[in-house]
Design a protein around this nucleic acid. Structure first.
Lengths: 241, 241
DNA sequence: CGGAACATTGAGAGGGATCAATGGACGTGG
DNA sequence: CCACGTCCATTGATCCCTCTCAATGTTCCG
């Protein structure tokens, strides 16, 4: 929960190809250096923000891993996403000036804090940033469409396969292996996200393992037949984010 | 599919309290009059746009009723939303400069065509429009969270109750009855949206009717016990859009 | 009036939930 | 460094909600 004053400019951040500045020119990048107010470290467990918190800033994940979660009045909750390096958190807060979900760190993490008023201000002069913000929000909307397909129409196997392919794809875009991954979340969190119970997640993993598609050692997964998995996950396997 | 040249300014549109201009001052409204390029009529059945269409404009529903739908590579499809008067269509297209879903008119409809480049341009000088666009997109993201709760964690009864309460709430915001409504979509479309089969939708309607919560006459519904329904639909019954 | 599209209702099957017990992994403290 | 407790994962047995398949009814429109 500590708030350090570490300041690093977007223009020489090694994430600039993944994060908000993606596609901006060198000149434009320099203008973005005023965008990040500071960095913030979050230990595993605590929330970056919580439902109801006043919205002031967007956050870019610099390192670590998050989940977002909404809780219903009757205490049920729903995991709405998992965010990794370079992805943006906080877009839910814009509409009502307060956050509508919790963002929880699943491991020790670090985020760049970008005051939203500053984003809007810079957007007015840097056209590409303006367009970029629109694209980021639109991407989120399109991503949510994929989740609706998943939750609305797919069966357990398909959901889990789609989930794995999505994770693999995002990890490989970050330079990680296409065949090996370490799950940062529990079976329960996966299940909650995918609209199934943790036992079903576990069983489905076991089934995939029996069929030789993957190898499971707790949170360590080895993808042995990506093509087969992809076939299971047919719909929108190219989904971004 | 005809493209008429009907031009009406936002500043004297009777939807300005519901639609994009909501909350803008009179002065600002005048600046928005350059925003709507034209109007377009869509008959029941055809699409306003289709997956893959080049994205150029957002659309505001002026009259009528739409559904948005994504189709997966293997032919399954998923209804991702229903849009009524004053609501915005096309946000999905921003990220890739092409639309990622179909927008289908469920009755004869009319939309205002707002070229996105013009929106971005005006946004740079009219700060409240800039903020407004961000809020509209954020609202869409928050709405999608509610759908995830619905699809991920609720049972058939709860889904349908939540759906009805949401419709009623949006209709009443438009001056329609809080207790009576005409469904513009079929059972199949409702079911697809809610992740259930049309038979289950029909059965659940019948169950609600048996319990005296509603009265069903095909597409005409009478809400007899809104409180009871709301209780069933507990989560995020206040969801916007 | 007849046909097509949509809705209702029933009977049976199945996928995933639920309840329950066991087994590993990890971290903390003795 | 081991013991213990906690958290997490696996697996089994059973049940129930929803899907599926199928028949009938209703409305609307040409």
């Amino acid at each position: 929960m500590s708030t350090e004053g570490l300041r690093i400019a977007c223009s020489n951040c090694n994430l600039r190809e993944l994060c908000l500045p993606v596609g901006l020119s060198a000149n434009e990048l320099t203008e973005l250096d005023a965008l990040v107010a500071n960095r913030r470290r979050i230990k595993k467990g605590p929330s970056l923000y919580t439902e109801g918190d006043t919205f002031t800033s967007l956050f870019a994940v610099r390192s670590g891993f998050f989940k977002t979660r909404v809780t219903t009045p009757d205490g049920r909750d729903q995991v709405t996403g998992f965010q990794m390096t370079g992805e943006i958190l906080g877009l839910d807060g814009i509409v009502n000036d307060k956050h509508s979900c919790d963002a929880v760190a699943l491991e020790d993490s670090e985020v760049c804090v970008m005051p939203f008023s500053r984003i809007e201000e810079i957007s007015r002069s840097v056209h590409s940033l303006q367009n970029h913000m629109h694209k980021i929000m639109s991407r989120e909307i399109v991503k949510d469409q994929s989740i609706m397909i998943l939750l609305g129409g797919m069966r357990a196997e398909e959901r889990l396969a789609a989930f794995l392919m999505n994770l693999i794809q995002r990890l490989s875009a970050r330079g990680f292996s296409k065949t090996e991954l370490v799950l940062r979340m529990t079976r329960e969190e996966i299940g909650n996200y995918l609209g199934m119970k943790l036992e079903t997640v576990s069983r489905t993993f076991s089934k995939f393992a029996d069929e030789g598609l993957i190898e499971v050692h707790q949170k360590h997964l080895l993808i042995k037949k990506p093509e087969e998995l992809k076939k299971l996950a047919v719909p929108s396997s190219d989904s971004c984010n």
